[in-house]
């Protein structure tokens, strides 16, 4: 533990978010957020995400990671600071920034293909109903649901529903894909399968989509991301950042077995511990930390 107690200088807190250039896809400047009448949820977040990057937002519960993602989506607006998407201020939701929620986001009264067709008709304006449904079938095939297109969400397993939700968001054609713990409710085998599917879709899209993936699972963040931004709680803030060095394509059993992987986990633990110590000094309630380690 002791040799990794101090994270490498290149990944130190001081270096993060300092450079914000115009060609970044998403640019977050001094963003704070509080619900009306509530305490601060997020404080002074600076981030920049470049085109085609796979960024994981890793945080314990209470770190405001979901709120941050909702801010990116435009479902909430920051109390302070600004978010720019390709140079334009984010002022509300847009199909350019598609979001996949944790669970139950498909409309239960629509067949899978109609759920997806709803999104198709937004991205391909003016296409007919039957064209939209054909396209929907294509997106569903992409996530391996070609034989379930006529099913209703309640007839599907949790994993299939999440595949459907991903297909629906893909159908929007968004260059930015926001994912809010999309595999959080799945069993480990299903989760791994969907993680690999997601990487495959991300790799094969051209131009490559930018992905921001929220999770509390350290292994998931390190397996998926090019970069992991770690959020601390009370209020939500960036407490660390890690560039993930593993080459792609990544094979889970190889990655999880590497010494480097264990070291990165230890670095993340250190970030969490440091934030926990700060919380003991500054906060009345200690939020849980190191969830998923």
């Amino acid at each position: 533990m002791s040799e990794v107690a101090n994270p490498p200088a290149s990944q130190d807190l001081k270096n993060r978010g300092a450079k914000v250039s115009a060609d970044d896809d998403l640019c977050v400047k001094g963003v704070s957020f509080a619900y009306p009448g509530g305490g601060p949820v997020l404080k002074n977040i600076d981030l920049s995400i470049s085109e085609g990057e796979f960024l994981c937002l890793l945080g314990a519960s209470g770190s405001g990671k979901t709120t941050l993602l909702r801010l990116f989506a435009g479902l909430e607006l920051p109390s302070e600071g600004k978010i720019f998407w390709r140079g334009k201020l984010v002022a509300g939701p847009s199909i350019e920034r598609g979001i996949v929620f944790q669970e139950y986001s498909l409309f239960p009264w629509l067949r899978l293909k109609d759920n997806v067709a709803l999104a198709v008709r937004k991205s391909f304006k003016g296409c007919s109903k039957s064209e939209a449904r054909d396209k929907a079938d294509e997106y569903l095939a992409m996530v391996g649901l070609w034989d379930a297109t006529r099913k209703y969400p309640h007839e599907l397993s949790g994993g299939m529903r999440q595949r459907g939700a991903i297909a629906r968001t893909l159908a929007l054609g968004s260059p930015l894909l926001l994912m809010d713990e999309p595999f959080g409710a799945l069993d480990p085998a299903n989760r791994l399968r969907l993680q690999e599917l997601l990487l495959e879709i991300w790799k094969s899209s051209s131009p490559r989509r930018t992905v921001i993936f929220v999770t509390h699972d350290v292994d998931e963040a390190l397996f998926l991301g090019d970069r992991v931004v770690i959020l601390g709680a009370c209020p939500g803030r960036v407490i660390g950042e890690i560039a993930v060095p593993f080459p792609r394509p990544r094979i889970p059993e190889q990655i999880f077995d590497q010494e480097e992987f264990r070291e990165l986990r230890a670095v993340i633990s250190t970030y969490y511990r440091r934030d926990a110590n700060r919380q003991i000094d500054e906060c009345s309630v200690l939020s849980s930390y190191g969830e998923g380690i």
């Binding site: 939701p93 598609g98 979001i99 986001s105 709803l118 999104a119 929007l172």
Partner: peptide
């Protein structure tokens, strides 16, 4: 809430 959010994220208009 999740249906409202989905509707917003899908860019559904008022009538839809």
């Amino acid at each position: 809430e999740q249906h409202r959010d989905s509707a917003k994220a899908l860019g559904l208009g008022r009538f839809e």
